[in-house]
Nucleic acid binder design. Structure first.
Lengths: 115, 115
DNA sequence: CCTCCATATTGACATTCATCAATATTCAGG
DNA sequence: CCTGAATATTGATGAATGTCAATATGGAGG
C-alpha cells in the first residue's frame, strides 16, 4: 500500500526529532518523493494533459502521441505519478484510464507554503 | 542571468505552442527545473530551516550541522536553490547569508494548482 | 482456442546526480 | 603582506534516472 499520504502531518512519528529547526529527516524524504515525481518535464506534461481533458481521464494511447515518447516510457512515467499519489488508474477492458486524484495538486502545493 | 523566473507567465514567449493540450515542451522544462530543485530531502530541509529562522536568514555554518553533510555539499545544494529562484544569497564579510526569496514558495505552489 | 490490440514489465545503456576530499577564492585582522 | 577562517569550486565515484527495444500480460472477438 503505502501511497505517500501527501499531506500527512507526520506529527508524533517524529517526536524525537533532536533539533534541526525545520523538517525531520523522514518528513523531508517523504515530501521529496512527491516533488521528484514532478521533477520531469514529460511528467508535468502528462499531468497537465490529463487535467485539461474535459472527460477528466485519458488513456495511454492518447498520451503517447503528444509527448513524442515510446509507449513503455509513458507507462513508466504514469506509474511514477500514480505511486506519488497524483494520478488514479482505472482499467476498463483493454484500456487504462488515468485521472487526477482529487485535491492532490492542491495538497502538494500546500507542502510548499507550509514548509 | 538565468534565474528561473519561477512565476513568469511565459505568455507570448510560447505563442506558437503547436497543440499538445497541456504544457508546451519549453514551459514544462522550465517548471520541472524548480521541482527538481525541490526533489531532494536535504534541500527541502535547507529551505525549511532558512524559513524557520527568526532572523530570516542563515549562514552556511548554521546549515551544515543540522543536515549532517559536508560544507561543500551544503554549498552545492544552496547554489541549486538559488539558481531555482527560491533562495537569495547575500555575502557580508566572510559569511554568506541565505534567505527565502519573498513569495517564491507561493509562486511555485501556484505552478501546481495552475497546471 | 487463436489472434490482435492496448498496456505493463524487463533488461540494457547513457546521462544525471549527490556526495566527499582536495583545492581555490575571498575577506578580516594583525 | 601573511595568516586564518568561511565559503565556493573542481574532480572523482557510486547510485539513481530516463529512455528504448524486446517481451510479457490480459482482455476482446472471431
Amino acid at each position: 500500500m503505502s501511497s505517500l499520504q501527501t499531506a500527512a502531518p507526520a506529527a508524533d512519528a517524529s517526536c524525537c526529532a533532536p533539533s534541526a529547526a525545520g523538517l525531520s529527516e523522514e518528513d523531508a524524504r517523504q515530501k521529496a518523493l512527491v516533488f521528484k515525481a514532478l521533477s520531469d518535464p514529460n511528467r508535468l506534461r502528462l499531468l497537465s494533459i490529463v487535467k485539461a481533458d474535459e472527460s477528466g481521464e485519458s488513456c495511454v494511447c492518447d498520451l503517447t502521441a503528444p509527448l513524442d515518447l515510446g509507449q513503455p516510457t509513458v507507462s513508466h512515467h504514469l506509474k511514477i505519478l500514480v505511486d506519488a499519489g497524483l494520478l488514479h488508474r482505472e482499467k476498463r477492458g483493454t484500456w487504462a484510464y488515468y485521472s487526477l486524484v482529487p485535491g492532490a495538486l492542491e495538497r502538494t502545493a500546500g507542502l510548499l507554503t507550509g514548509l
